[in-house]
């Protein structure tokens, strides 16, 4: 039944990572993204991805769940790889045949782009796997709340996200019922060209919109009746508290960034590997 759909991709488990404050996790993600973007050498990705594996192990989320996030990019990744491989011509030439030229710079850039994307996507995915949409919303609201000074609508944004999360299953169920009601009247949703099909969707979309507006109106009345008057003077049932583990997590992430910075400016392992492999192509060329 449509009712049973789970939103987001939260993987329930009891782990250190799950128990981290959502605010901490959002900050960690930002720090991680910074770490990924300051990486300049390929070998340093080993460090970053190693850290990713470590966090995944700590979270008790099976690795293949985290890797699933790469699946939607299964076309994009090879394309990016090949484009970079053939387009970039810096460093030594490895292969040169007709119009195809592969250079060490090309290989490096191709690997670099792919690894960076994988690192980013798996990191974001680990966050959503270990945090429910509700606490994510909550974390976001509180992280952004200092911005209220510059009139940033942090509370309103979070309220909208909460209501959306609450009503998506309800609306899906309703869409299903409307579709059935129109199918029963002989609506044909499957044949015809794209314009015909778009037009055939109207009998479903119109009731869905009309009902949603009525829902919104009723919900507004219900919220008003429950003394809702914006974010001002509001308290929350759940109190978020930073603990020692949040501090530790942030320190560890800071250590990763430091390691990336220090190691890549002092150790040129990429150059060393290229140097080792150079005889392979200099001889053939």
């Amino acid at each position: 039944m449509l009712k049973d759909i789970t939103l987001g991709q939260y993987f329930p488990a009891d782990s250190v990572v799950h128990r981290l404050d959502p605010r901490t996790k959002l900050v960690l993600l930002i720090m991680y993204i910074v770490a990924v973007f300051i990486v300049k050498d390929i070998w340093v990705f080993g460090l970053v991805l190693g850290f990713m594996l470590f966090m995944t192990a700590m979270s008790k989320v099976p690795l293949n769940y985290v890797l699933k996030a790469i699946k939607p990019m299964r076309l994009l990744l090879p394309l990016m790889f090949l484009l970079n491989l053939f387009m970039i011509r810096t460093g030594d030439t490895i292969v040169s045949w007709r119009f195809i030229t592969i250079t060490t710079g090309g290989v490096r850039q191709a690997l670099f782009i792919v690894l960076r994307l994988i690192a980013l996507v798996t990191g974001a995915s680990l966050l959503t796997l270990t945090t429910t949409p509700v606490s994510l919303t909550e974390g976001l609201e509180r992280l952004l709340s200092p911005l209220k000074i510059i009139k940033f609508p942090a509370h309103e944004l979070a309220m909208m996200m909460t209501i959306a999360l609450r009503f998506i299953p309800t609306l899906l169920e309703e869409a299903d019922k409307i579709m059935k009601a129109q199918l029963a009247r002989g609506a044909d949703l499957e044949s015809g060209n794209i314009f015909k099909r778009a037009k055939a969707m109207l009998p479903i979309l119109i009731p869905l919109f009309v009902n949603s507006f009525r829902r919104a109106e009723e919900l507004a009345l219900a919220m008003e009746s429950r003394c809702y008057h914006g974010g001002e003077g509001r308290t929350r049932l759940k109190v978020l508290k930073f603990g020692w583990r949040d501090l530790w997590a942030i320190l560890i992430m800071a250590a990763l960034i430091a390691a990336v910075v220090i190691l890549q400016s002092n150790l040129d392992i990429d150059g060393y590997i290229i140097g080792l492999l150079r005889p392979l192509w200099t001889r053939s060329a």
Partner: peptide
């Protein structure tokens, strides 16, 4: 159309939250 949040317990707290009741 009168339940606002995604968890029962938090929804029941919606009114008191608006009133600023201590957690």
């Amino acid at each position: 159309n009168q339940i606002v949040t995604t968890v029962v317990r938090e929804d029941v707290a919606f009114g008191p939250e608006n009133l600023g009741v201590p957690p």
